[in-house]
Simulated scan of single mutants.
Amino acid sequence: MRPRFLFSIAFTTLLGIAGFIVPVAFAQKDHHDPLTEAQVEKIREAGIYPNDRIKLYIEYLSDHVNTVKSLTNRGKSDARAMHLDSELQDVATLMDELGSNLDQYSDRHADIRAALRALAEDSQHWLITLKALAGEEPFDLSSKEAIEAGEDLADQSQRLLREQTEYFDLHKDERDQDRAEPKPQ
C-alpha cells in the first residue's frame, strides 16, 4: 500500500507542477510586443546614437497613434474596441520605454536636444488624439493609461530640453556628444 501512496503523491505533485507551468507558458506566449522584430533591431542598432534612437521611437509611436486616430472614425464594434485597446496599450508601453531611454541618456549627459525638440512637439499631437478617445467604455482604462504615459512623456521631454539647454550652455565643449566622457586629469 505504501508504494501506491508514494506514486499518488508523486503523480499529484507532477500534475500540480504541470498545472503551474502550462499557464505560465501560455501567459508568456500571449505577451505582445508593440514593435516588430525589424523595428526592435533598428532600435538596437541605434543604441549608441541617442538622437537616432529617440527619433525611431518617435516614428514608431506616431505610427501607433495614427492607427488609433484611424480607428476613432470607424463605427463602434467589439473588434474596433479590441483593436483600440491593444493599440492604446502599445502606445503606453512605447511611451514608458522611451521615457526610460530618456532617463539613461540624460544621466550620461548625451546631447539629445534635437530629438527632444521633435518629441516635445509630437507628444502634444499624440495627446490630442488620445484625449479624443477619453470616456469610451470598452477601452477606458487603456485610454487613461496611454494619456497618463503621454502626459508624463511630454512633461519629461520639455523638462529635459530645458535642463539640457542650461547644461550645454555651461559645458559648450560637450555639445553634440552622444556620451559625456570623463576628462583626463
Rank of each mutant, 00 (worst) to 15 (best):
Q177L: 11
D169S: 14
T72G: 04
E87S: 07
E181M: 13
H171E: 03
A154V: 05
V40W: 13
S100A: 14
G47Y: 08
A146Y: 03
E37P: 02
P138V: 04
A110Q: 01
L102R: 00
E151C: 05
G19D: 06
E163Q: 06
L153R: 00
V91G: 02
S70H: 10
K76N: 12
L61P: 01
R175S: 05
D122F: 03
Q156D: 01
D173M: 09
Q158P: 04
D107R: 13
D111Y: 02
L56Q: 06
H171K: 10
S157V: 06
I9T: 05
I112N: 00
G75S: 06
Q28S: 14
L98H: 01
N101R: 08
A10T: 07
D78T: 15
F11P: 00
Q124Y: 10
H171I: 08
G47P: 02
E174W: 15
P23L: 09
P34A: 06
H83A: 12
R4M: 10
L141S: 07
Q124M: 15
S8C: 14
I147N: 03
I128T: 13
D85R: 03
L161S: 00
H83M: 14
G150W: 01
L14T: 13
R2G: 01
E145M: 08
M1N: 13
E145Q: 14
D122E: 12
Y49G: 00
E181I: 11
A81Q: 01
D78M: 06
R53V: 04
N73T: 12
S62P: 07
S123V: 06
I43C: 11
H31A: 13
A180Y: 04
E148K: 12
L84H: 05
V22T: 09
E87K: 12
S8G: 14
A92E: 01
Q104R: 15
S143R: 05
L170D: 14
S62T: 15
L84T: 01
S70N: 11
T72S: 05
L133N: 01
H171G: 04
Q164G: 10
Y60I: 00
G19W: 11
D52C: 05
Q39C: 02
G75P: 00
E166S: 10
D169H: 12
K183N: 05
D111N: 03
G150V: 02
Y49W: 10
D33G: 10
S86K: 06
P23E: 15
